[in-house]
Design a binder for these strands. Structure first.
Lengths: 215, 215
DNA sequence: GAGAAGGTGTTCAATGTTGAACACTGATCG
DNA sequence: CGATCAGTGTTCAACATTGAACACCTTCTC
């Protein structure tokens, strides 16, 4: 189940920081407090990276950095296409099981171009509406047959959907207005000096030289 | 991660229908449309049951039903205690990762006694409040340093928490008033004749005879 | 300058999850 | 009746996840 969240998260994070090694990714993800909602144990990261590399979404470079041998990853063209596919799927799928994937996708929003984001948000709103209608129909029909606690749980679910819908409509409006820096646009917020992302910058430069690769 | 949801769900469902076999559980869970939010592939069920049996939470009886050999499960005293532990943990843990476990717990509400339910709901409300306050503090302090899309995501999270909180307060009030049939209380809703739970009744009786076991 | 402490980068055996596929039983049908 | 089909009950090899533990380096302390 979780495989798709992990793939989305890893692929996206590599794209943000490449070339990058597993430990750096872990550090960064922990600093995002992502551990509240994703599988960021060391094992998950390294095996996820290995899988993505095996599938050709990432390229692994075994680089000698000083005296140390390090596994450094970069994204491939196929990997970047795959990311878009996964991102759109995560945004357009509604339901409890997919909510982690949705949050992951939102956290990686700036990796997607504006038009794709708009389309995906619109699709999600529609999917939420479909689900809501289905629930309502079910509640009015089989009225007596469903236990009260299950009925109550359905109410919670409806309330959550409504809250999310309002948020989505608002976000879509902001994106339409051109707010939020998305892919290919200049960053519109102040990056703090102690951002761990910055601490990677030195390593990144060195890694770029060590692998003869430019993306 | 998911291990705890699966354990809670399987243990609870066995308690509802025991003595019961893996296929019956699967049928029942699918009829609940649980596949939207839980791991109910055949493999997960059978291996989950095996694990619970190995740990002494369930007892496995290899029974010969007609010509067929069937693995029938019943809960043990230890398993029922374990269920309560897992249920309370699921209810009292807030956060995206634990929301599936929370929904699972709510679906199994009638297996818990009224006072434990009240205590757990109260604890959850408190935990939500703590989490909300932490979020608010974070948003007011590091104002400029966090990217706008992350800020926005935090807003969604806050809205969801608020929605859930209101629902919890309402549910708690109803439980305090004595609404909803909980453990040891007579069922207060009409069971439909085609409820798959009923279809199990015949098998259940036969299984009870086949194993020399009374709980 | 021994050794404790903490950071960097990764592996691996144990465990959990997946879903296709198996084996069997009855029913339905030409 | 043989054949096809739907339902019952389960297994298993492939794959994913877990987190303790390893190996190595640097920094600090006594």
């Amino acid at each position: 189940m979780a495989a798709t969240e992990t793939r989305l998260l890893l692929l996206g994070t590599v794209m943000l920081f490449e070339p990058v090694n597993g430990y750096q990714l872990r550090r960064e993800l922990l600093s995002w407090e992502v551990d509240d909602w994703a599988h960021v144990n060391p094992g998950s990261i390294y095996s996820g990276l290995a899988t993505l590399a095996k599938q050709g979404a990432l390229e692994r470079h075994d680089v000698v950095d000083g005296t140390r041998e390090v596994a450094v990853y970069t994204s491939t063209t196929h990997g970047r296409r795959e990311f878009e596919r996964l991102w759109e799927h995560a945004v357009e799928s509604v339901g409890l099981t997919s909510s982690l994937a949705f949050h992951t996708a939102m956290a990686l929003l700036p990796l997607m171009p504006r038009d794709r984001v708009l389309a995906a948000l619109t699709a999600r709103i529609a999917a939420l509406d479909v689900m809501t209608r289905r629930q309502l129909d079910q509640n009015t029909s089989g009225a007596a047959s469903v236990p009260p606690h299950v009925r109550s749980l359905a109410d919670l679910w409806m309330g959550m959907s409504q809250t999310e819908r309002e948020w989505l409509v608002d976000l879509r409006a902001r994106i339409e207005r051109g707010e939020l820096a998305l892919r290919g646009e200049p960053v519109d917020w102040e990056v703090p000096a102690d951002d761990p992302g910055w601490q990677m910058a030195g390593d990144r430069e060195r890694y770029v030289k060590l692998i003869g690769k430019r993306r």
